[in-house]
Design a protein around this nucleic acid. Structure first.
Lengths: 206, 206
DNA sequence: GATCTAAACGGACTACAGTCCGGTTAATAT
DNA sequence: ATATTAACCGGACTGTAGTCCGTTTAGATC
């Protein structure tokens, strides 16, 4: 059994916080506000960092100092939703949260993730674009990967559950799921059913 | 049973080929030669289209007229190896080719794909970068996706084998496999073993 | 309040993919 | 040989992410 704690998506101020300067704080708020506005107005894909700098009335350098990259900004925008999702599968009610048998939790996890992607997929995809590092090793990704691994272990799959979790996780990748939903028009329910089928077969008789 | 034919990776000259002009042919050769040279010299990631145009002593417009995009060029560079891979799992000897039971073919397919990525992964990744379309719907991808689907069907998995094949395929995605190999230092054999475990469990008692 | 300094700022600059369009040329017809 | 023309060519141009560095300023110290 592990000890899992919520992982902050974008750890602001690494440790002994020398507390943010007031102008910096003001600009961060302005930027986040403008970013949300712009994403609503023209969508994630048409959104550019120049537009953001302009709208927030701030220099471009400031934007990048704050968020590091376009992907970093997207992560920040996603951070609250991602935390909420984490909260649900770690502390929430069963079958997603603890209390249900591992197979049921896995099924629920897939379903929930698919819904998450339906809602925030564009952001999530943009958050890992142009960076395999972000895609595979970002804190939230690592966390739900470990979650799957733990459930596999509980279900008695002891043959390299880490890699197995990686494979399962792959099929829930935002880009893939989004592509199935949007490009192939596959309904959420069918994706969820396929996931259920997959993990059910996998966990059958330990 | 389907009728499968080799899919040309980059269908040169769409249909009623009006035959390429001689200067165009010359330039295509020059470009391919220069591209291979440059990829060898500085690696896929450092490779730029400007470098290519310069090295081949050709205008930039010509490069893009020929290959459409960076990803398109990478596909072209990959095309021969990809065709060879296709040949092996469609016509080659068992267990990869026809003749072995589906589970064994599936296992062999994963192993072969992992080796392929070990060798050509950087190219393959670059060929689908910046384009979910390329990543998921490029002809070779569609082909091996259908191959997996067929094997699943043969093995008696009739519950939405198309989507199941998509999920399995996801774990063989070049970017993922490459990331495991290079970033996490996971040896090829361990990936292959995990794949074997995955599909074996999945196909157990139809 | 004056001084100091590290942090934050802004916007010009670079790198790269991809587009555009006026000029050139290979192939064909005459 | 000459004319014709559709395909081809080059390279200047655009859009966007990300960097750099001289300037400004918040906030702490005296």
């Amino acid at each position: 059994m592990f000890f899992v704690s919520l992982i902050p998506i974008r750890p602001e101020l690494p440790f002994g916080a020398p507390s943010e300067r007031s102008d910096a704080a003001r600009n961060r708020e302005r930027l986040l506000h403008a970013a949300r506005e712009l994403v609503n107005e023209c969508g994630v894909d048409a959104f550019t960092m120049d537009m953001l700098a302009c709208r927030a009335d701030v220099g471009k350098g400031t934007v990048f100092r704050r968020f590091g990259s376009r992907a970093g900004l997207m992560m920040t925008l996603l951070s609250d939703s991602e935390s909420e999702f984490q909260r649900q599968f770690i502390f929430g009610p069963p079958p997603l949260g603890p209390g249900a048998p591992p197979l049921e939790r896995l099924i629920a996890f897939g379903e929930a993730r698919i819904k998450f992607v339906e809602e925030f997929g564009e952001l999530a995809r943009a958050a890992s674009e142009h960076s395999p590092q972000n895609r595979h090793d970002a804190p939230p990704v690592v966390l739900w990967h470990r979650h799957i691994e733990m459930l596999l272990r509980e279900a008695g799959l002891d043959r390299d559950p880490w890699l197995l979790a990686l494979s399962l996780g792959a099929s829930l990748d935002p880009e893939r799921v989004l592509h199935s939903l949007r490009e192939h028009g596959i309904p959420q329910e069918r994706l969820a059913a396929s996931w259920r089928e997959l993990v059910t077969r996998l966990l059958k008789d330990g």
